[in-house]
Design a protein around this nucleic acid. Structure first.
Ligand SMILES: [Zn+2]
Ligand SMILES: [Zn+2]
Lengths: 355, 355
DNA sequence: GCACAAGTGA
DNA sequence: TCACTTGTGC
C-alpha cells in the first residue's frame, strides 16, 4: 500500500498539539453572552461569506496527469491531520539549503536566502536553486523529494495553500506550463504534480549530485506572491521538503524553509535583518511584532475553556469565527455608542467587509 | 429608434482629438531601428500576454435582465468613439454634487466629496448619495440618469472599466444583488443595468426631488477599488453622469465626477489637499506628479511622427505597445552591459513580467 | 535603489 | 488615527 502524504507528514493528532492549539486559538473564556450576541445572525455584522474560505474548494481535487507508475492512493486518516514542519534529517541526513547566500552575492539576484533564519525571499516565478544533501542512499531513483507549501501560523496551517483568482486565470503566463492550481512548481523534466486533500504539492525524483558537486540541485518556482489577495493573502508561507521512498511514500527525512514571495526580495530581507537586529538590541517590550502575533504558546496555568474541533473543517471554521469575533469586538469598541443615526440615507447600514 | 449610449456621449471622432492623442501617445520619432529591435520577438523580453488587456474580453456582452420596455438597440458607430466627460448642463441646467462635504461633516463617513475638484473619495460598496438638480422638466419620468465609469487618462479612456477577477467571483458579497460585471451600482428599485460595447452602465429614472428638497438624490455604490489588480488597476476613474431622454436616448445634459474608491477616503482626500496646497506654494519644478504623467499635451512645435490608429482596439494596442517599449528601454538602461552570465542555472532567464 | 501610494492591523 | 508593509513608477 502506498501513500503520498504519509502519516509522518500529516500527523494524526487527537487531543495533542492540535487540540492544544485549538484551546489557545479559540479563546472563549466565560464569554457565553458575548458568544450569543456574536452568533445572533440578526444582531452582528457578520455574513457567511466571510467564512467562505472555509468551504471546501469546488472539487479541484482531481489528480494531475501523472506517470501511471506513480499513481497513488492515500491511506491517511484525514481528520485532524496537521502538517508537520519540524526539521528531521533522518537516517540519510537529508538537508536543504539555497546556494548563493546574500553576503557573497555579487550581482543582484531575484532571490535571497537567509541561511540562519532558513528563509527564502524571492520574486514570483523565478527559478530558485534548492540544494539537497543526503547520504547513505544506494539507489537515489528509489527516493523522491516532495515540496509542499503550508501556512506558517497555526491559525492557518490547516488551510491548504491555494492560488489567487488572478494568477489562476488560464491566460496568466504562469500557467503556460499547466499546473494552474499549484503555487509551487519544479523546473524538472520528471516533476510530478499532486493534489491530495486539497493540498497541492510537487515531487521530483532524487538524483545523484552533478559530477563535481556534493548536492542535488532542484529549481523551484513560486506562482503566487505572499500578498496575493484571495490567495495566500499576506500569510507567512513554509515550504516543507520531504525525502520520501517512492514506492511506499514513507517519509525518510524532512526540512522546512520559510518562503516570502515578493517584488523586492532584497529590500524585504534587509528589512527583516534590521528588525532582527533592533529586537536583540532592545530586548525590552520593543516594537510589537506587527505580523500575526500568533497566540501565546504556553499561556497562564489558569483554567482554560476551549471548544473541541471534530475535524479540520470545523477547526478552521472555529478559528475563523474567532477571528471574526475579534474583528467584531474591535469594530464595536471603535464605534462605541453609535452616533445619532443620520438621515438613514447618508451612509450604508451594516455591511459586510468587502475586500 | 432608440440608443442608450447616444452619439453625444460616444463621440465619433476621426482625425480630431483622438488622433491628436494618438500622435502624442505614440511617440516614435525616427526610432525605426529601436522599433525593429523592440518588435523582434526573439530579442526583446515581451510576450503577448502583456497585452492581454487589449483582447476583447470573453464576450460578457450579454444584456442584463432589463425591463423589456427599456430594451434598447445601439445605433452608434463604434469605431473611434471616445467617451466625453466635458460638463454640459444643457437646457435643463443638469448639475451633480455629493452632499455633506468634508468641512461640515461631523462624523466620519465612509466617503468624502471635494466639491472644487469634483472628486469623490469613497470606500467600496458604500451607498454614496449623489444629488442632482435640474429645471424646466415637465415630466421627469420621461428622462433618466445614466452613470458610466470611464478612465480619466487618455491612455486608457478607450478601455472599458471592468471589474477585477476577485470581485467578479459570484460568491463575493458585492454580487449578492447580481450585476456581477458592474463596477457602478445604483441603490434604486428601478435601476436598470446596461452593457453596451463592453461598457457597463446603470440608469435610474429621473424623479422629482423629495418634498422639501431641491435636488433628486440617487445612491450609487462602487464595486471595485481603484487599486483592484487586473481591474481598474490604480487608474483614475471618472463617473460620467448624463441626463437622457428615456425614449430616444438623446443626451440632454452631462456632468462628470472623479471617483477614487479606496480604503481610507479621508486620508487620501487629505493627502490630495496637501499636495494641491504645496504645489501652489512652490510653482517651481516642485515634485513631479507621480501618478500617470500623461504625455505632454502640446509638446514642441517640431515635426512629429505618429502612427494612425484605425480603430479603438488598434489604438489601445499601440498605446500599450508604446508603454511596453518605454518599460523595455528603462530596463535596458538599468541593466546596461549585462554582467558576465552566471552559471546559467542560478537565475531565471528572460522571463515575462508576472503580476 | 528610492520614494510614493495605499491596504491593513491595532 | 497611526504606522507598517509592500507593490510600483521612475
Ligand atoms: Zn496570486
Ligand atoms: Zn475589484
Amino acid at each position: 500500500m502506498t501513500s503520498s502524504l504519509d502519516s509522518s507528514l500529516l500527523l494524526f493528532s487527537p487531543d495533542d498539539e492540535v487540540l492544544e492549539q485549538v484551546k489557545v486559538d479559540i479563546g472563549f473564556q466565560n464569554l457565553s453572552q458575548d458568544w450569543d450576541s456574536y452568533m445572533d445572525p440578526v444582531e452582528h455584522p457578520l455574513k457567511e461569506h466571510q467564512l467562505s474560505e472555509l468551504e471546501p474548494a469546488p472539487a479541484e481535487a482531481k489528480e494531475e496527469p501523472t506517470p501511471p507508475a506513480q499513481k497513488q492512493v492515500s491511506v491517511q486518516p484525514v481528520a485532524n491531520s496537521v502538517p508537520v514542519l519540524d526539521g528531521w534529517p533522518g537516517v540519510h541526513q537529508f538537508q536543504v539549503t539555497v546556494r548563493r547566500r546574500p553576503e557573497q552575492a555579487g550581482r543582484q539576484l531575484p532571490y535571497v536566502y537567509s541561511a540562519d533564519g532558513a528563509k527564502l525571499y524571492t520574486d514570483m516565478m523565478v527559478a530558485v536553486p534548492f540544494s539537497f544533501t543526503y547520504s547513505g542512499v544506494a539507489d537515489p531513483s528509489a527516493l523522491r523529494i516532495r515540496a509542499l507549501p503550508i501556512y506558517r501560523e497555526s491559525h492557518h496551517i490547516q488551510t491548504p495553500v491555494r492560488r489567487c483568482a488572478i494568477h489562476r486565470e488560464p491566460q496568466d503566463p504562469s500557467n503556460d506550463t499547466g499546473h494552474m492550481m499549484h503555487v509551487v512548481r519544479a523546473d524538472h523534466h520528471h516533476a510530478s504534480y499532486h493534489v491530495e486533500q486539497e493540498r497541492c504539492s510537487v515531487t521530483v525524483p532524487l538524483e545523484a549530485p552533478e559530477p563535481g558537486t556534493d548536492h542535488y540541485q532542484v529549481l523551484f518556482k513560486f506562482a503566487c506572491m505572499n500578498t496575493c489577495v484571495g490567495g495566500i493573502n499576506r500569510r507567512r508561507l513554509m515550504l516543507v521538503l520531504t525525502l520520501e521512498e517512492r514506492a511506499s511514500g514513507r517519509t525518510l527525512g524532512r526540512q522546512a524553509v520559510e518562503v516570502k514571495v515578493c517584488r523586492c526580495p532584497h529590500r524585504d530581507w534587509r528589512a527583516d535583518e534590521k528588525r532582527k537586529g533592533s529586537e536583540q538590541a532592545q530586548p525590552k517590550a520593543s516594537k510589537r511584532p506587527r505580523r500575526e502575533p500568533s497566540p501565546p504558546p504556553p499561556s497562564n496555568g489558569q483554567q482554560q475553556l476551549y471548544v473541541v474541533a471534530d475535524d479540520p473543517a470545523m477547526y478552521r471554521y472555529l478559528v475563523e469565527a474567532r477571528e471574526s469575533l475579534l474583528r467584531y469586538r474591535r469594530s464595536v469598541l471603535a464605534e462605541q455608542a453609535p452616533p445619532a443615526p443620520l438621515s438613514r440615507q447618508d451612509t450604508a447600514p451594516v455591511k459586510p467587509e468587502y475586500r
